[in-house]
Design a protein around this nucleic acid. Structure first.
Lengths: 344, 344
DNA sequence: CTGAAAGCGCTAACAT
DNA sequence: ATGTTAGCGCTTTCAG
């Protein structure tokens, strides 16, 4: 590889001058600088990020901690979409990303150790167990951190507005005349807790009393589990008129179960998902769901982390709420008298 | 951060000895070495990958070039699944991965330059335009390279067996009594060319003559395009009995179109996908499709690249074929006399 | 068995 | 406006 020294020799200048020219220092003769840059380009010079890091302590590398139990976080559309936008936004700002993990050949590294080993300038954390001591070690470390969909005290975060999401769904259902609303929840995380709280609050605001048997503990991204919960709900004497699922993917398990019973969607029973995966628009009927703005979440998280890295003094680790929007699909029946005329 | 020098001082030894102890050199007193390792652990020592790289020229970093036109390669299940297994297998071997891209702040870097900038030890290339001069520059460079689903001369590759895949599908269709087989192809890539060649070859072997109007140029991952092609096929006087789609995702566009015409799947028309995405098992009817072994592809590609990196002399850049398997779903009707009794 | 010293490619004082 | 120099943290001959 051609290095600064080579350029210096070719130009008959010192390596210091070349270094300065390359990064556009002001106290160099503009012409010399320009000439150096031309020669550098001509010789195919590419800076060595590691060598630079050693001196500057800046890797221009962002760590991404993105794991779930099944280690398939990348395969869930919500997360892969966030990852994709983190990647794009990072690159736009001259950063690369590095996945933080435990594995390092034979040796085990904690998340923090891995981050240090690779000298990342900061870390974005999502889709993990935020109670994990190693995750806590990481957020409490010297490294700038941004969490997604979780709030620690004094740690910057970007969260999808789950409270508003559930609120929008329920208000929509109510406007469509639904009163018997069942809710299959996801794993017991802070996101789930917010959704449940918002569920009860919004139902209360609408003077709805929800039977306990309409609330089922479910799991995220496990259609089978939602299918079973659906079966239980369909077995009730007093069936709900609509079922809310933890996510669009799980909802598919519900559909299978519902069709197995010979019920039609939405004529016999209505369903609502969450996330707004691309597929929700592709299937027929189009799924009624709350579309999370995953792309925006990734962008905001990245911007915030870079701010934290580059301007630690002036950046306050705050909380950014990203709102989505209801997708009125075709899986919720209008039960009101005035037919089509529900609120838009 | 604690560094080797700190450990050396604490142990009253030289940094050279500590360095040796840490990597298990033999000519050190085993007891001293053990003691050093204990102290290192106690002090929370984590090596600095960049500093090491500067000396050893090894980053233990694998570059991944994974882009498509829509820059959403990560959002296609086939590719995200490959990426996921590349990541897992890399980590298992002590490597991290770095996405190779063009973007680097304001400055444009070619793929090769980016790879050099980050000092990756090798690159895995998939889902890109292999005619791109920059991709060619990369594979022809000094960097070890493995391509996925494409063959260059003398470049290691791992490819999904598309010839066998299409062959299996067609033989299955024939066994189910289908003779009028329509094929919506994908973008004009080498993968598509192989599938088309295999299509004609296998049809020939089965003495089937396929009308030209049954072959439609389509696109990968664009349900709309497949939907339009489907409409054209359904408008034919002599309709096909089955339609093969470029991928499972596109097939959904076909389903929508078919149902719009009031046709039932598979009673009125049969359909077959490609890829075997998780969803294909979740929908009802279960989709008949060829399941590509994407996980295995990622593992093989990573193993091969690491071999190339670590044993360049003894590793020959060959071609690995990864085969998948037919998923007999519920979207192909049995047209033979003997009813259910088709070949298994 | 242990240590001294050079140097990987680059940056940033500090001269000149 | 340009050059000298001292490291960043680590590995690796080569001496002792």
């Amino acid at each position: 590889m051609v290095k600064i020294k080579d350029i210096a020799e070719r130009c008959g200048l010192s390596i210091a001058s070349v270094s300065k020219a390359l990064k556009g220092e002001s106290d160099l003769n503009p012409k010399t600088a320009e000439h150096i840059r031309e020669v550098a380009k001509e010789m195919g010079y590419v800076p060595n990020a590691s060598a630079r890091l050693l001196k500057t302590k800046r890797s221009y590398n962002i760590g991404v901690l993105f794991v779930d139990e099944t280690s398939s976080g990348l395969e869930h559309e919500y997360f892969s979409s966030i990852l994709n936008s983190i990647k794009d936004e990072s690159e736009k700002n001259g950063y690369d990303i590095t996945f933080i993990s435990h594995h390092f050949g034979q040796n085990y590294l904690t998340f923090y150790e891995h981050a240090k080993y690779r000298n990342v300038d900061g870390v974005i954390i999502a889709s993990v167990d935020f109670k994990d001591p190693e995750v806590i070690e990481l957020v409490e470390s010297d490294l700038p951190t941004v969490t997604i969909d979780y709030d620690f005290n004094d740690v910057a975060s970007v969260v999808s507005d789950n409270v508003q999401g559930v609120r929008d769904i329920i208000n929509y259902l109510v406007s469509m005349g639904h009163k018997k609303i069942a809710f299959i929840t996801g794993d017991d995380t802070s996101v789930t807790q917010k959704r449940i709280a918002s569920f009860y609050k919004t139902c209360g605001e609408n003077n709805l009393v929800i039977k306990d048997e309409y609330i089922k503990k479910g799991r995220y991204h496990l259609p089978k589990v939602s299918g079973e919960a659906t079966r239980e709900l369909l077995a009730l004497d007093d069936k709900p008129t609509v079922i809310m699922y933890p996510d669009d993917y799980s909802l598919l398990g519900g559909i299978t179960e519902i069709e197995k019973h010979g019920y039609k969607i939405p004529d016999d029973i209505s369903i609502v998902g969450y996330d707004g995966i691309k597929l929700s628009r592709l299937l027929r009927p189009i799924i009624t769901t709350y579309v999370q703005n995953s792309k925006e979440i990734g962008i905001q998280a990245t911007k915030k982390l870079i701010d934290l890295i580059e301007s630690p003094r002036t950046t306050i680790p705050d909380r950014t709420l990203v709102i989505g929007g209801l997708q009125e699909g075709q899986t919720v029946k209008n039960l009101t008298n005035n037919g089509e005329g529900h609120l838009k």
